[in-house]
Amino acid sequence: MIQIKGLSFLYNDSKEPALNNINLQIGEGEFVGIVGPTGAGKSTLALCLNGVIPHFLHGEFYGEVKVDGKDTVENDCARIAYSVGSVFQDPEAQIVSTRVEDEIAFGLENLNIPRIEIAARIKESLEMTGISDLRDYSTTQLSGGQKQRVAIASAIALRPKILVLDEPTSELDPKGSLDIFNTLQKLNKEYSITIVVIEQKIQLLTEYCSRLVVMEKGSVLLDGPTRNVLANQEILQKIGVNSSPVTRLAYMLKKEGLYQGEFPINVEEAYLVVSKVLSEKRR
């Protein structure tokens, strides 16, 4: 679904490349989380996927990015928008309309989709994101989490196969963040939309994503199934990616030689690990 080959990018007026020889293949229906310290090039990578780079933000672009079979250099943003939906960090800055309905219609109107079709698509994407009750709301009335879900609805109204989200929960409270990830999970499982999400809250990523990509200084450092990536605790801690408390707990137990096995990804699994260790100790 996404093929990135030897991608390097250098922003104008910048000496250090933001991306340095990235190679990444993401298949259909994957739920991929991208983590990494600030300045690792995560956002730049997201902008390369939706064609904003190189069409809107300029710089030196090397390599090849293909989304849904479309080369991002040969196709303009509008054509890529049919395949890749984008959601950004700031809920305030990506909402252009004053009514929820109009916000979802915005992309459809831009692509000259007929009126009747727009009405059907609005209904569909509101249902998919579970916010049908917000349809007649004014966008200024919404909470941050609701705004982000409207942004997601607006992105999927174009029926993209891929959804790219750049830190969608960074300005949200824990409840709002959870809502977003539940929505993403639903879109991934029920509608098999490929999801690529950049996120600082590693706990959410470990619980929801099947695959993790760790970036540092414009390169991909680690890439693989979530548990396998989490096993590289030394590297993660060295580059300043904090793991969730349950992962750290398991890592400490492993270091003490008390536990061998897979890394837990949530509290339930951690409970099993700890009770196993305790029962072995007792014996």
Binding site: L47, S86, L108, N110, R115
Partner: peptide
Amino acid sequence: KMAISMEARGFASGPRSYFR
């Protein structure tokens, strides 16, 4: 940021339709 978000949704890419 808003310009980027609009660009990603095909703003000003050609003829436009209206929902209302």
